[in-house]
């Protein structure tokens, strides 16, 4: 008789029913889309410009780098991990990559292919930091949130240090080659490159998560790591890869951001830590692991970006934006906890 499972059996006594509609809404993938529409509708009378074509295009272009990072975060969240280091990867990749291509560092100027070398540097930074996070979590048994918090602090500091050491003004790498800047700013037939890059990342991520062996493994690990291990899933390797992918996505996003801003800067991404985790979670990717889709992350990113734009149009100061963002993330986490409770009860 397995007495250990019994207390939960007992807790499963018929609970009082809540209104079904609220429950279904809470569990729905489209909740956050509905919230987005609601938000726009509420703001419309106050700032009519929120519903214009120009605003929408602006939001769309601005959200692409965030979308790419958040997709990487989705991989880590699915295995019940968290990657708080993404902003520092953005910053470090930005300055290291930029230093390859400009006079301030100019490490790859002589190579003849500075842009390619620069992009390789971006990607390498992302992969290496991701690998470090993954190995610390899986091989050394350190909690993911504190490992990534530490790498966050280290590489944020490193980016500043690197910039101060290599640039004249000590604050950023300017004068990036025009063809690199084009990645972040250019358009093909009116469609920004960045949209294309984000679409490709999204497509690949979706394919990997929903259609490949590796994707299935990630969900299995998030749902029950012990059952996964017993079923022959290489748990440690897969979790490490999830962190590497998160690093890679942050690096790609860094390319887009850096191109958009035309400078490699160590403060890149300083403000978006909450947006990264928050957009995935509010979209429906659980902090407890095992569930989440790329489309959910997309909805979450859309929501946060629209909220951001709305606050901007309202002319709110930084303080309020901070506070509201924090509240939104808290709301996302609360919704996640409520959803989980519903699932466990059902």
């Amino acid at each position: 008789m397995s007495t250990t499972t019994l207390p939960t059996e007992r807790a499963a006594e018929p609970a009082r029913r809540r209104p079904r509609i609220a429950e279904r809404l809470l569990m729905s993938e489209y909740l956050v889309l509905a919230l987005t529409v609601l938000y726009v509708l509420i703001l419309w009378p106050i700032v009519p410009s929120i519903a214009t074509r120009a605003t929408m295009l602006d939001v769309l272009a601005a959200m692409m780098p965030l979308l790419v990072v958040a997709i990487g975060q989705t991989f880590v969240l699915i295995v019940a991990g968290i990657d708080l280091s993404a902003p520092s990867i953005l910053a470090t990749a930005s300055v290291v990559g930029a230093s390859m291509m400009t006079d301030d560092g100019g490490f790859a100027l002589a190579s003849g292919i500075p842009i390619l070398a620069g992009i390789v540097a971006f990607v390498a930074v992302g992969l290496l930091i991701g690998l470090f996070n993954g190995l610390c979590t899986t091989r050394l048994g350190m909690p993911a949130f504190i490992v990534t918090l530490t790498t966050m602090m280290f590489f944020s500091g490193f980016a500043l240090f690197y910039t101060a050491a290599l640039t004249d003004d000590g604050s950023s790498f300017g004068d990036l080659p025009a063809s690199f800047v084009a990645i972040g700013q250019g358009t093909v037939a009116g469609v920004p490159y960045s949209l294309g890059v984000a679409a490709v990342v999204m497509g690949v991520a979706h394919l990997v998560l929903s259609r490949t062996v590796f994707g299935r493994w990630l969900y299995a690990i998030g749902r029950n790591p012990r059952a996964a291990a017993i079923s022959g899933v290489p748990v440690r390797r897969a979790v490490t890869w999830a962190f590497v992918i998160s690093g890679l996505c942050a690096a790609i996003a860094s390319v887009l951001y850096t191109g958009r801003l035309e400078t490699g800067t160590p403060v890149l991404g300083q403000r978006i830590l909450l947006d990264i985790v928050g957009s995935a979670v509010i979209g429906g990717v659980s902090l407890f692991g095992g569930t989440g889709k790329v489309t959910q992350t997309l909805y979450g990113v859309l929501f946060l970006s629209v909220v951001d734009k709305g606050l901007q149009l309202l002319g709110l100061d930084l303080a309020s934006v901070f506070a509201i963002k924090g509240l939104v993330i808290l709301l996302a986490a609360v919704l996640d906890a409520l959803r989980r409770r519903l699932i466990l009860r059902a």
Binding site: Y219, A220, R223, N224, A227, G290
Partner: peptide, 8 residues
Amino acid sequence: AEGLMMEA
């Protein structure tokens, strides 16, 4: 605890 993913 070890055999199944109960929520799958």
